[in-house]
Nucleic acid binder design. Sequence first.
DNA 1: CGATCTGTTGACGGCAGTCAAGTCAAGTGG
DNA 2: CCACTTGACTTGACTGCCGTCAACAGATCG
Lengths: 239, 239
Amino acid sequence: MVAAQGIPSRCSDCVIRRAGLCRVLSPEEVGLLSTCAYHRSFAPGQLILRSDDEPVFWGAVISGVVKLTKLLSDGRQQIVELLFPADFVGRPFSRQSPYFAEAATHTRLCCFKASEFEALVKRHHALKQYMLESALSKIDAAHDWMVLLGRKTAAEKVASLLYLLATRGAPDQERLRAGDPAPSFRLHLKREEMASFLGLTYETVVRQIKSLSKAGIICLDGKREFCVPDLHALQRAAG
Amino acid sequence: MVAAQGIPSRCSDCVIRRAGLCRVLSPEEVGLLSTCAYHRSFAPGQLILRSDDEPVFWGAVISGVVKLTKLLSDGRQQIVELLFPADFVGRPFSRQSPYFAEAATHTRLCCFKASEFEALVKRHHALKQYMLESALSKIDAAHDWMVLLGRKTAAEKVASLLYLLATRGAPDQERLRAGDPAPSFRLHLKREEMASFLGLTYETVVRQIKSLSKAGIICLDGKREFCVPDLHALQRAAG
DNA sequence: CGATCTGTTGACGGCAGTCAAGTCAAGTGG
DNA sequence: CCACTTGACTTGACTGCCGTCAACAGATCG
């Protein structure tokens, strides 16, 4: 765990005050949480949590993208989840983190002590209800991703990821919706990270992006800027 | 949903009274639940919940194995989870089931009304805490399976599934542990179901089982009876 | 300027999918 | 009891998708 300067947070004017877990907290509960909360920044590639470590803090993503990864003993790696702003980082009620959490982009977290958060969850039922419903949603998302990993072709996998990032991976105002006039969006992941999330190699990701681009389903502007002329076409390509 | 005879349950002498969600319920809470609980039997292959339907009941597995499956629009299928005795069946706090639930073996469920169970969860904090912790565990398991689907070879996938079934898929007293003297255990899944869970075809599963058997890591007795001479060897073969 | 990181492209090969045929056991019905 | 069907499983031949390996291009940076 890397030492970092703690900046006291003021929740009332926080950009995620009305989203994620903070949304369900009453002003008093936010006050309680904010007494032990502080902000931290992470550079791209920087480790946030180490697998098997006992985490000392958890947090909420304020900005940036966090990837959760697991390793096989011989080094093969799989990204198992991507976290976006307002998502919760950490695994309550376990002594060991089941995965590595790593900043994919420059990332800001609102952190709080693990023990104090667990106590808060146990006492505050709206928060516990939120944690439960959000865990159930994450199970649904994991199941969807298992279908992708087990049954989709490389082309469908890449299309699925681009669709996900276009519709979910950006701040609300930047998200694409059906009918939008082909705005571009920025890809926050490297080719290698896309591959690691999709169960592919990065060469295959490169080839499939090129193939989608040739088919006119996406257009590239540089390496990281995409536009999607027809969101439905992308969705169809995703299977 | 197939009509079936309801049999009033008596929880106190139920085989799963001390496991799963029933374990965390006080006698009074069990009493409350049992007023709306009834047992149902399902034949192998019989549908329990249909994807996109609004479920009218949820339940707990008393005996048997339940598979949760998802479909792609062209019919490709993926099993996303297997449920064993004491596991909870259903997706609370959602109007639509995200998957099909189907009996893999002859199965008995203890069913209760969806609405009454949700109300019970909202009021009883020990139950809500159990549902939360069990949801978080299921996320961990789903993540592990994503690593399998994304990164493991066919041989490792089959070995992983056999390891899982040997150590988790049987009633407590039949589970294998390291050092046990190679007892045999019964495989409850068809080759096709194994393939569907592993992201493979059933021909590949057949070939990999044969290959593990030739390597002496497992031995076959008929098609469904397995023994594992060395559990560690199987674990190593699982990657 | 070289070093490093990220991304691209091509050649080649192998793992696992596809297609097809065949075995075996359990049922079913005359 | 036998002929037939059905479902589960096995095996072989072939193919192709995607992984592997290698070279290279472009950007960034000290």
